[in-house]
């Protein structure tokens, strides 16, 4: 049962990482334009080089 002392923190940590990623995405307005983001991936415009940062 000692394995629990390792596995429970590990499972909590993994779940927590998922939560942090979700909150990060929320903060970075990743859910502003779900339809557009899905379509943008089809555009060939920035395939050769990344879009320059403005």
């Amino acid at each position: 049962m000692e394995i629990l002392a390792i596995l429970i923190p590990v499972s909590l940590g993994l779940g927590g990482a998922g939560l942090v990623a979700f909150l990060w995405a929320l903060r970075n307005r990743q859910f502003e334009d779900p339809k557009g983001d899905g379509q943008r991936i089809l555009s060939e415009q920035w395939d050769d080089k990344p879009r320059p940062k403005d």
Binding site: E32, D33, P34, K35, G36, Q39, D54
Partner: peptide, 9 residues
């Protein structure tokens, strides 16, 4: 300077 389309809206 910049233009950004939001397709959802």
């Amino acid at each position: 300077r910049s233009a950004r389309v939001n397709l959802t809206l």
